[in-house]
Design a protein around this nucleic acid. Structure first.
Lengths: 121, 121
DNA sequence: TTATCATATGCTAACATGAGCATATAAACA
DNA sequence: TGTTTATATGCTCATGTTAGCATATGATAA
């Protein structure tokens, strides 16, 4: 009598890896985090992130490719917003995991707050 | 009156991205999936995965580096098992997300089962 | 000790990725 | 129309990743 193991089939495996890849970038995580709070245009994202405008646009392109965000032009600006509630869950789960890790490492007491505010304007 | 946005601080961002990176490989996801079902040695993983032994060992090394798995030598073999319950949650959340996606895409009806069994021996 | 089996590691080639500069496009305004 | 503003895209450099071959290590068996 032999035990059997379940394999995830390749298509599902590849898709899962792709999504993980989208989340595997600090910049993209930050963008998703910001868009979870508000609908923002590129300029607002650029100043919040402190990155180059082209860098932000490139990352938005990738998020768009996975249909995680949607865009709408208003006047001169293009506003982005989250378009996939599931990815937010996955991201928050991931961030929760990290909280747990960082809390564990920082057991000594000198724990820093997770977030800090910035001014949108 | 200006709205404020919360930024995730860099350390947390980097850590989250690192974890996502670990999950951003079909091979590693499959390994985690298999180890979720049973404690397995490298040879068993190799035959289940159908990859080169060195490839599997390299991936195990990465999973080890993140302390997602632990190892124990028994006789000539080294057995691996999951060492982090949280990552399993994150992975399952991710896989659930993918199920949702694939189901959506395959709306036409020809939907394939998610997993298939293999013989462990 | 030597041979053998199981696993780990060094190395390399092919490929992907992230960031930023320079530039193109597209809308709005004068 | 021409100019300005906002965003997108092409290109490139530096860096990282994957997989596999060859080989090293480590444990067991003879």
């Amino acid at each position: 009598m032999s035990e059997s193991l379940k394999l995830i089939h390749q298509a599902k495996l590849d898709e899962a890896a792709k999504i993980a890849k989208v989340l595997a970038s600090p910049t993209r995580i930050q963008i998703l985090n910001l868009l979870e709070q508000d609908r923002l245009n590129v300029g607002e994202l650029v100043s919040a992130l402190g990155s180059e405008q082209s860098t932000v646009s490139h990352q938005l392109q990738k998020l768009r490719a996975y249909q995680l965000i949607s865009q709408e032009r208003i006047g001169k600006s293009v506003y982005y917003e989250l378009d996939d509630p599931h990815i937010v869950d996955t991201l928050n789960q991931l961030l929760g995991h990290v909280d747990h890790l960082l809390l564990g490492e920082d057991h000594a007491g000198k724990h820093v707050s997770d977030c800090f505010d910035i001014n949108k304007d």
